[in-house]
Amino acid sequence: MRLVVDLNRCQGYAQCAFLAPDVFALHGAEALMYDPQPADDRRPQVLRAAHACPVQAITVEGEDVGRASDGGGAGASRVG
């Protein structure tokens, strides 16, 4: 499975690192490093992490979670 984190949006709350620790990890106090292509059996944990992200920075392929898809800009276009 594929995912990407909008690290402009990420504020280091680290909810993802608690919920899917083998996919998301902090290096130091707030630098997030993640596995962009974890094994498919990690999907439940990854989805929990994506839903729990306070700033909705995680985009998971095939899932309508996260607001990372809106690019953070102003405007009417929102992708579902």
Partner: peptide, 18 residues
């Protein structure tokens, strides 16, 4: 991640939103 050896170089394909 890739240079640290945590993620293989071919594992950064972008997720498709649609």
């Amino acid at each position: 991640q890739v240079l640290l050896g945590l993620v293989p170089p071919d594992h950064t394909a972008l997720p498709r939103r649609r």
